[in-house]
Nucleic acid binder design. Structure first.
Lengths: 235, 235, 235, 235
DNA sequence: AATGAATGAGTCTTCATTCAT
DNA sequence: GATGAATGAAGACTCATTCAT
């Protein structure tokens, strides 16, 4: 009747299917307002089946947070570390690409869960701090420091700069899953990808040293094909 | 037994005390995980009394969101609109002062409630969009446009710039009430006030036109008192 | 409408009413098969009210066991200790009266709960061992020892004798709440009170020393009005 | 792979293995608190297999009760009926041996199940009354009556005497599977076999007629080998 | 025959809300 | 107005039973 391996395949796919269903519901309603049966329904199984794979709603939630964002973060960190060209390039290209990927991925929802539920799940807070915040911030901090050492950037405060860079992009993810998901609202944020690129370009210009600025200006006024895919900003 | 005036005074103060208790609990646990009796306890009254003032937990929540942030926003908007000096000054002084006030006020918590609960309370979403987001963004957008018209800023995309300016400051408020409230976590963000000022300084530099940059440089190299209270950044 | 103190009185009576309802249900169905709502219904309240007084079904159960039998035991122990006449008299009169009272009291049900649920509630086991078994057995053991010392009884093993005395009476309580409660069954045990007295008389005769036996025989053959309220046994 | 004979043998042994597993679990936790999967695990099979042999948990339980004690009872009854010597001998030897065997057998657990679950399974109650209680009591009642007729015993009430004889021995079985199984408890009952013998000896002495008592005394004072294996009691 | 994944009825427990005092 | 005892709808979780493999 049914493909003989289907049952087996379904069994192996269950945990992932449940995690995805749970993520979508948790990010929509919040942990406390999500009914575990609704998670099961979204995953196409019955209430009882959910409990075959995760011993409680809380464990399910923790699994969602632990398993959803890590890969995305690790990949972005790797790309930044392996980047060979100038730091400015890394900032407006690699970092932008990374965050566009994050923004489009289901993992973007985890930021909302983190903000929302952290205080109720202290052990998740340390997981998130160590596995997401720390590696991400460190990678960007390294980038900024390399820029300063190379003379591309001014001698700014590194920590604050990292936050100027990433906080808007995280906010973008939060926005996507809160106001952005309320279709009744007139949206002020129409082009998230464009925003990411322009934000990074703006910060880059804010960071650049006199020398780097002069160089950029020269390139722009010249026929330089570089322009770092910068959104066209004139001034 | 009790001073009748005191009782009267307490009675009149009740709604505000209840709102404050509710805000603190809702921001800590989230709406669904907050027990209405706990709100009453924090306000020093009994469960039943709460219902004399707010007909339901949901109504209480909506009152919290509606009444907590509005004054702060209106005041900031007013200051920005009345500012007489250069736009750059408004950005790094008035706007910074405004956000420091917001960050320190109980209203900072409302951003977390908005992110967290918006999808569950669609009518709050429109309230928030119209009463908080729109006026705030409009005021800053006007600032940016005035800067462009005055030749202080490059001809950037206004909307995206507004987001580059405000999103990190909103994130700061969210942070304060989520990870920031988990005392077990090693904090990367140590000086929120300093961050606000440096972020705005960074963005300002990113926005400034060549002419404005040259002027700034002249001022710095000259005897200018650097009246903008700019954090010292060299480059 | 209602007696103004009724509400208060009911509140104070609740715990006891709930304990009684719980005892009757637990002894009927067993702990696991008893639904907590059924306890509430028997006590004439709603499900939720039960939880105002006992935080869980398990706590309710423990309260039932701890509070139901203690008074009965303590009273019996006191009577035995204060007995002034011969040990034989104490055995067939005071002890019999005690156990008739126990048998008729709701506390008789606790023996069944103890047998049934002890292995599932280890802390109840030690409570029961220390608060019920130990004082009861000690009191009877003292009685037996006094009888031996006084020459009324032979030099029997005290512990085993205590068990010969009490085990049938405990079994009687168990019987009352198990087979005895199945009205479909033809009963072999028709007169529990008579059984208690005859059992004690039988054991007494088994215990008595030659001398005491001879004395008893003399009394019986004489006009002695004593006869200790002994059921008439001839032989 | 596996010896086909072994598989065959195991298949035939299954029902018995399942009954044993079920008995051990039911007596430990009670019927309602026992999970049928745990029965299967103890029998070394899977949940599904259990249902190939017994259509429901309740049927399994009934089978346990029906099949576990009957043989033990029948055997004891037969021995008592076939006994040729004096009734006193039968009482302290055959009956004691019988109960030692019962106490040591798995069947001892059935008494606990009977006490515990009887009221929830009325048809078991009648089975137990007719197949266990009735034959057992009848056999012992016959013994007592033979003793009275033979002049060995006084003219006691037969029914009550039967209960004085058997109830402590049943209690012993209950004890073994309730408090006795709680290893944390200091035990007052150290030697069940000795207790059985001494209890029967005590009751015997309580039952004996003057004539029989005198005869016993003579035997003891004479060279009698005290063939009754009476525990040494002096008095 | 044997397995164990899946099901969903059933139960404990919580908590927003009511209302007699 | 203020209280807090009482209610019962709702939700997390369990487990006997089924059935495709």
């Amino acid at each position: 009747m049914v493909d003989p391996t289907l049952r087996q395949r379904r069994k192996e796919a269950r945990p992932q299917e449940l995690l995805e269903a749970a993520l979508s519901l948790f990010v929509e309603k919040g942990f406390a307002a999500s009914r575990s049966e609704e998670v099961a329904v979204r995953a196409g199984v019955s209430k009882g089946t959910l409990y075959l794979y995760y011993p409680s709603k809380e464990d399910l939630f923790k699994a969602v947070v632990r398993q959803t964002l890590s890969a995305e973060i690790a990949e972005g960190v790797r790309v930044l570390e392996e980047h060979q060209g100038s730091v400015s390039e890394a900032l407006v290209q690699d970092l932008a690409d990374w965050w566009v990927r994050v923004y489009e991925s289901p993992g973007s929802a985890v930021f909302k869960l983190a903000i929302t539920e952290m205080r109720n799940f202290p052990d998740l807070a340390s997981f998130y701090a160590e596995e997401v915040v720390l590696p991400g911030c460190t990678a960007i901090a390294n980038l900024v420091m390399r820029g300063i050492e190379a003379g591309e950037f001014r001698a700014v405060d590194v920590n604050n700069t990292v936050h100027s860079i990433v906080l808007p992009m995280i906010m973008l993810c939060l926005h996507k899953h809160s106001i952005g998901a309320c279709t009744t609202i007139e949206q002020t944020m129409q082009e998230p990808h464009a925003f990411i690129r322009q934000h990074l370009a703006l910060v880059l210009r804010g960071l650049q040293s006199e020398a780097a600025l002069a160089r950029s200006a020269a390139e722009v006024s010249g026929a330089s094909s570089v322009s770092l895919k910068l959104p066209k900003i004139e001034g």
